[in-house]
């Protein structure tokens, strides 16, 4: 199998239009922010999207089942074939990490269905799209179906999976063979987190510097492509209180309510503890269970924070 092909930039839109005929095609578009939206002819590749594509798989709100007394029924969901074009390496890895939880460990049918019907086409960053990008410090892997490398007047397209390969076969008229090679996948100047081992820093007093800047608004976790904490609640039907829906919604470890249990006890009352918990989950706790860091270095938790808490700088300086 040839795993590297060439696509002229002038042919990109023709290719996307073809894809659009058979799939729902989502691409980054610049509106007030850069967002993934259905392809309507415009595409914006200069920055990464403000919101990650997590919401397309791990839904903000999901009805798990309808209940009627002791009986439950899982709602049938229409699934559509989807393609996401222009996903960055950090976000692709983030989806891989969510797969580990929702598919490999727990086999979550809601998430799995959304994933199975989707093809992920990456767009490789030639330079870091934001000053807070630190993917170079994380150990990222190839987990896309296709990857587009921007080479000026053309793209080099790497075929990385069976899904990707069959998509290319279907549309082979756009692609040419090439003898070019991808020499590196490291994105320059993104190794700005100097240490990922923070196991001995938990009691460092400097954490207070960060948590004193934290509004506990949970922007960091909402914008994080990997954060998956959620809460589950029942919505009773007013016409018959025995009936209702059980729903799963996004939540956040940064909220005081998140660790509130029956009886009113809050496990992480202090903002500092909540702030540390997020960083430690990303860099330590997930690794203990799954063998990789949860964080993929997209930097959204800093660029999207209202007070721009730069925990990278904080951790770097703690070591010194």
């Amino acid at each position: 199998m040839v795993n590297l092909l060439k696509l002229k930039k002038a042919h990109l839109k023709k290719f996307l239009n073809k894809l659009k005929n058979e799939h729902k095609l989502y691409v980054p578009v610049k509106t007030d922010l850069v967002r993934f939206e259905e392809y309507k002819g415009d595409i914006y590749l200069k920055e990464n999207s403000y919101f990650p594509i997590k919401e397309f798989f791990f839904k903000k709100e999901e009805t798990l089942f309808d209940y009627n007394k002791n009986k439950i029924s899982v709602p049938e969901k229409e699934s559509e074939k989807r393609i996401f074009f222009g996903v960055r390496r950090c976000d692709l890895n983030a989806i891989k990490h969510q797969d580990m939880i929702f598919i490999e460990k727990f086999n979550d049918p809601y998430y799995k269905k959304e994933r199975e019907n989707s093809i992920l086409i990456g767009y490789h960053c030639n330079t870091a799209p934001s000053e807070f990008c630190f993917c170079g410090s994380m150990d990222l892997k190839d987990c896309q179906d296709l990857m587009f490398f921007d080479k000026g007047s053309y793209f080099l397209v790497e075929i990385s999976s069976k899904k990707g390969s069959s998509l290319i076969k279907k549309h082979k008229e756009f692609f040419k063979n090439t003898d070019k090679k991808i020499t590196t996948k490291k994105i320059p100047n993104t190794d700005i987190l100097h240490t990922k081992d923070i196991s001995n820093l938990y009691n460092n007093p400097d954490w207070k510097k960060a948590s004193s800047m934290c509004l506990s608004c949970s922007a960091c976790t909402a914008l994080c492509p990997t954060c998956y904490c959620h809460s589950i609640h029942d919505e009773g039907n007013v016409h018959n209180l025995n009936k209702g829906k059980r729903k799963r919604t996004w939540s956040s470890c940064q909220l005081k309510e998140f660790t509130k249990v029956a009886g009113g006890h809050v496990f992480r009352e202090k903002r500092e503890d909540r702030f540390k918990h997020r960083i430690y989950h990303q860099l330590e706790y997930f690794k203990e269970r799954y063998g990789v860091n949860l964080c993929t270095g997209c930097g959204r938790c800093i660029s999207g924070c209202p007070t721009r808490i730069n925990w990278l700088k904080l951790v770097n300086e703690m070591k010194k």
Partner: peptide, 19 residues
């Protein structure tokens, strides 16, 4: 509800008005 408005605002994919 005892969470800040930001929780729903971010969930609704709004631009942060403070920004």
């Amino acid at each position: 509800n005892n969470n800040p408005v930001c929780v729903e605002c971010r969930r609704n994919n709004n631009v942060c008005l403070l920004d």
